[in-house]
Amino acid sequence: SSASTSAAPASSAPAPAPPFNQETLQQRLQALIEGARESWTYAIFWQSSYDYSGASVLGWGDGYYKGDEEKGRGKSKTTSSAAEQEHRKKVLRELNSLISGSAPSADDSVDAVDEEVTDTEWFFLVSMTQSFVNGGGLPGQAFFNSSPVWVAGADSLGSSTCERARQGQIFGLQTIVCIPSENGVVELGSTEVIFESSDLMNKVRVLFNFSN
């Protein structure tokens, strides 16, 4: 239910909403999670734009990963095998060198990569490569219908028709919520079961109403 490429506005397509400041977007995501009573693991803003054909797509806008602090890093659950962990660490090492502009080195492995890459960290990282056509996946459904999608419970996620929900369940999530805003969709995920809250939806409407 997701497209594999990110979108650039086509010159003949309708003008998308003006891009908003990356820093304030990060602050809004952080405020949403840190100010919540519930324990959310991450928040992602999927930004609405258009692909080369003018079709509406949701692509990565920004994300804030909090993790599962109560559980402590050492106790974070991972279902990954040793080979999978090596793969994740290798990818992280390469991403680290991509960002820092240097070749992967022993030093890199000491500070950021040698620690286990948890399932939720990996789910969050992989999310950066994804985008959703209008109506596709949980974010696409929420945006297309202008209506929140709230999936709570491992069974509900695991039996969802959406690939992203099923992937989330495999990587230890128990709740995924997608709340539409003017220019995109705010997605929150948690390793705990969190039931629907109008308070959270109101916060999203206030924090992500970019025209104000």
Binding site: S6, Q22, Q26, W60, D62, G63, Y65, G67, G72, R73, G74, V91, L92, E94, L95, N96, S97, L98, I99, D111, A112, E115, E121, F124, L125, M128, T129
Partner: peptide
């Protein structure tokens, strides 16, 4: 990794930096 779009680099850099902080505080 070389295919990671430029627009997502800021998010990635922030994630890696915060991960490093979490490691140091653990």
């Amino acid at each position: 990794p070389s295919a990671v779009p430029q627009a997502r680099k800021a998010s990635l850099a922030r994630f890696l930096e915060k991960r490093k902080e979490r490691m140091m505080n653990a």
